[in-house]
Simulated assay, not measured.
Amino acid sequence: MEYTLAIENAPETVSGGTGLLLVHPSTVETDRIDTQFLKTDTDHLLVISTRTTAREVRQKLEHYEVDEQKATILDAISVERGYTRRQSDQVRYLSAPDNFADLIAETERFLSQSDGKRRVSLDSVTEMIYYADHEQTRDAIAEILELLDEYDAVGLFHLAAGVHDDAVVDEFRDLFDGTLELDETGSLTSSL
């Protein structure tokens, strides 16, 4: 299955099973790229947030006019911060950003219970590393990438480059089919 990428300076399409790494400075806004990825050519989308709450994710989707009816949000931060949460079909909660077993299980649940074109966004790999370490995070991301391949879905994963050693960033780049790179000015380059 082919997926359209409506992202500047990126290929027009990618094949199902493709995982993209969005590498960015921690000071640059990534919502524009993330929502361009999510709202194009898709039937169902899963937004995994280890950085912001489900409420904030909903606000982002609404602001950028992403069809919320297609969205499932997996909030990994609210429970950790002690916020009240109400699980529903469209909003799921994890106990913490480093609860990788449930993160992977919820991702597989989404992919196995939906059909058509599916997109997964994970913001952010950096937060996962903060809560666990880069080795555990790398293994969890590798499992999610395998699920994308198995279910013919595509994914976009955020990584704030400046806060990690170059060797760690390179290790994560090697997991993915391609990299989208934002610079300090918000300009994007891609290598796939």
Rank of each mutant, 00 (worst) to 15 (best):
T107V: 04
V154Y: 06
V168L: 08
D31C: 09
N9L: 04
Y151L: 00
V163E: 10
A161R: 03
E2W: 10
V154Q: 02
P25F: 08
E150A: 08
T40S: 15
P25Q: 03
Y93Q: 01
Q113K: 03
V79P: 15
V14N: 01
I77Y: 10
Y131H: 14
Y131Q: 07
T42A: 06
D166Y: 04
Y83V: 09
D98H: 15
V79R: 03
S190H: 05
R55G: 15
L74K: 00
D98C: 13
R118N: 08
V57S: 04
P25C: 04
D183F: 09
T72E: 06
T27D: 14
L188Y: 07
R173Q: 15
L61H: 05
T13G: 05
Y93A: 06
D98M: 10
L45A: 09
P25K: 00
A54C: 08
V169M: 04
R109V: 06
V154N: 03
Q36S: 15
D102Y: 05
H158R: 03
F176V: 05
A71Y: 11
L46I: 07
V79D: 12
T50Y: 09
E68R: 02
A10Q: 01
D133R: 00
R81G: 14
H164P: 12
D177K: 00
E135F: 10
H158N: 14
S95G: 14
E181I: 00
A10K: 00
Y130W: 12
L94K: 04
I144N: 01
D165K: 02
D152G: 03
G116P: 13
D75R: 00
V168D: 12
V120N: 00
R51Q: 15
E8D: 13
Q87K: 10
G155T: 01
R81Y: 14
V57A: 01
T107R: 01
S49A: 13
D102L: 02
S26Y: 09
L5D: 06
Y130S: 12
E143W: 00
E181N: 07
E12R: 00
L103Q: 09
Q36H: 13
T42V: 13
F110T: 01
H63M: 13
I77P: 15
D75N: 03
V47W: 14
H164S: 13
R119K: 11
D174E: 11
F37D: 07
R81H: 15
S88Y: 08
L22S: 08
R32M: 12
I104Y: 08
D75M: 03
G162Q: 06
H44M: 06
G155V: 02
R32K: 14
S15H: 11
A10W: 06
S49V: 09
V23E: 13
V79E: 13
H164I: 11
D149R: 02
M128H: 07
A105V: 02
T84H: 14
L182D: 08
V125R: 03
E171P: 11
D165P: 13
L46P: 12
D115W: 00
D133I: 01
H134W: 10
Q36M: 11
S191W: 07
D41V: 04
L147T: 04
F157P: 07
I77H: 07
L182H: 06
D165Y: 11
D174H: 04
Q36F: 12
A132T: 05
D133Q: 02
E56S: 11
S191I: 08
